[in-house]
Nucleic acid binder design. Sequence first.
RNA 1: GCGGAUGUGGCGAAACUGGCAGACGCGCCGGACUUAGGAUCCGGUGGGCAACCUUGCAGGUUCAAGUCCUGUCAUCCGCACCA
Length: 809
Amino acid sequence: MDMKSVESKWQQRWEKSKESVFNKKNIDKKFYVLEMFSYPSGAKLHIGHWYNYGPTDSYARFKRMQGFEVFQPMGFDAFGLPAENYAIKTKIHPKDSTEKNIATMETQLKAMGAMFDWSAEVKTCEEDYYKWTQWMFLKLFEKGLAYRKEAPVNWCPSCNTVLANEQVTEGCCERCGTPVVKKDLTQWFFKITEYADELLQALDTLDWPEKTKLMQRNWIGKSIGCEIEFACESGDTFKVFTTRCDTVFGVSFVALAPEHPLVRKLVSDECRPAVEAYIAETAKTNEIERLSSAREKTGAFIGHYAINPVNGEKVPIYAADYVLYSYGTGAVMGVPAHDERDFVFAQKYGLPIKKVIENKNGNTVLPYTEDGICVNSLQFDGQFGDDARSAIANHLTKMGKGARKVNYRLRDWLVSRQRYWGAPIPVVHCPHCGIVPVPYKDLPVKLPYNVEFEPDGKSPLAKCDEFMHVKCPVCGQDAMRDPDTLDTFVCSSWYYLRYADAHNAKQPFDPEIVNKMLPVDKYVGGAEHACMHLLYARFFTKALRDMGYLNFDEPFKSLVHQGVILGPDGNRMSKSKGNVVSPDEYIQSYGSDVFRLYLMFGFSYTEGGPWSDDGIKSVAKFLDRVERLVTKYKDEKPSKEEKTASAAEKELNFVRHNTIRQVTRDLENFSFNTAVARLMEYVNALYKYDGEAEKDAAFYKECRRDLLLLLAPFAPHFTEELWEQTGGKYSVFDQPYPVCDEAALVREEVEYAIQINSKIKTKMMIGKDLTEEQLRAAVLANDAVRPLTEGKVIKKWIVVPGRLVNIIL
RNA sequence: GCGGAUGUGGCGAAACUGGCAGACGCGCCGGACUUAGGAUCCGGUGGGCAACCUUGCAGGUUCAAGUCCUGUCAUCCGCACCA
């Protein structure tokens, strides 16, 4: 078959008959299949795109043939750093390069033959999209979920912008690998922490990979503990956070983060030079080193003491950079006997190590960090673990010196960026009125085209006078726009909502439509978004729900991560490693169907693996086999006659229905490789039957018809063509997917493995209607079994129906 | 350091709630048809002459373990002083 012309023939036909356009009339049968949209940083689709979109499209087509009204949109996550960096290098404006890339990618995506509903296409860099991204910002601002504050933030000196916590990997910029530095800057944040608990709890309701849920759980990092107030000799007080208030009697020092304001306030004159030096030293240390648990613990005594509220003991106060100012209260109580870090610290500075928890079974080796029995803890002696903690927490509460407290590792999401290619933040800074949101009617705040976007650490927009100068919407006096743009993850936090109502000019979406179309039934995309996009999108959904725009809690009911296709050398594909495999040449010589089918067959979908094209020919061969078989009889019109099925027909019918059952199940599970294997087995069985002298032509025709229907989602153009050639009515995708006939799966005889003392000795066919007694007799009569059992005492029979018999002598 | 995953033929990989390990395919070997085969079709293919052995390694539970338990090694991923 000439794949090229066949593919373009059907792509045109599908487009003309609007095969892929969602029909709103059938909204009650909707099935929303979503692939993460493309980032148009390069012009061409790479293998990763094909691997994400091809198999998922097959799944979508399968769902469609099962009678669902499938909605499978596609779009572009078009703002962002790569386009801008490319622009800096080449001097081509990001808007121009992005638009060009999008145009090429659209063509390529169409050539893939996926049933994307292009009528719902979304491009985040277009005004009619980012207008609503800005709308989202204003709504969050109104709700108090967007705020501006000065804070130590992650700064990438290479990208010249701040980054969210989620975009920092091992202390380095997630994009370019440059170590980030901390800077105190005034930035915009979204209050995702407001939803920390719900984001955590609701994970249990999601059909997501466990690993991804676990990553989100860890990222949110809930810890239940207690805040305890310490008073200083000076009269100042501060709080520490601890999950182990049962160890409070073991405190032998307290440590404050060097940035903690009390450090400078309380430091004694004598200690001041050393402490100042220490603070300066800490500020110099870069974030990666500071955050490394392997690093030696250091600190400086500030010459001042605090009082342990439970026993009145005077303990020294240290500044120590293993205490993080940004977590909890920025202060910890040091319990060397029961915390490894405190233990190391105390050893270094010669601080007392006081055991207050005893191992249940005696030998307590310090530091002992497990739960145990309180000792040296006055009235709490003898209490254990949780009981001790609640008793002590209650005691502290009664004293007014503490309270239970839950802390999260999750920080608010920093969304402002000092870069050009993004949605401008719709806010005006007025010398009189302060921060003024741009009125909704004035949206979008347009991103100007003529801007010097070469980054120098200042927002490029700040240098664009016509953009910056504006009248205050409240008082009408001269004011300035916000020069920052929004993190691209803001754009992608709600695109799945826009798809459902992509052309709405009055609002981001009509809640009535979106509440029917969402949540997404199957979301497919890379695992690298576990703690970024997937978390942010959940936050947006919950925030919009609380504002009354949505009536569901979670955007993505069910999630699948495709694996990663590596280079042939087993490394991630990258230009610098020179191991990039381009899909283009394969598409050129084999066509889209073969390439897609190979991606499904050659890899375990969620695993991925190193690229190898060893099997690609076999997949082409497989389709050839199908074509030959099907076209051989294409003009035959068998008349139906009542015939009793021969053994060969029963066997073929068994394989046929077994294939239907397995393929259906495998597709549900995204187990494409085994599904294709089943189809190959079925084709092998058909060929076997084809060699029979006597064939039931009508039955055989039905079998071939089912083959095409089964195959259609896997090789859409190819099958549509054969369907037409064999007289099928357009389109094969309007046909129902075959349904398994359970009766055909019942076999008269099944092969059993016969074991003696758990070792396989032989195999035999056993009728399905045999009683256990008859079965035993039949087994004992078997020629291979008889000599081994004669004269021996049979201790036990184990019969696994349909599988094996085990005789224990 | 903590958490998670993976480890199966020469290769890509299968194996539902413990029940015939290696489905399907690549490669390889043999045969058929051919002027020819890099096309197609058919057969064989984990190891060992055998009994038997075989799912990273060492133990354990069980009639039965790739699957469950304990320990251990290797690789990959995530988090990394979160009190």
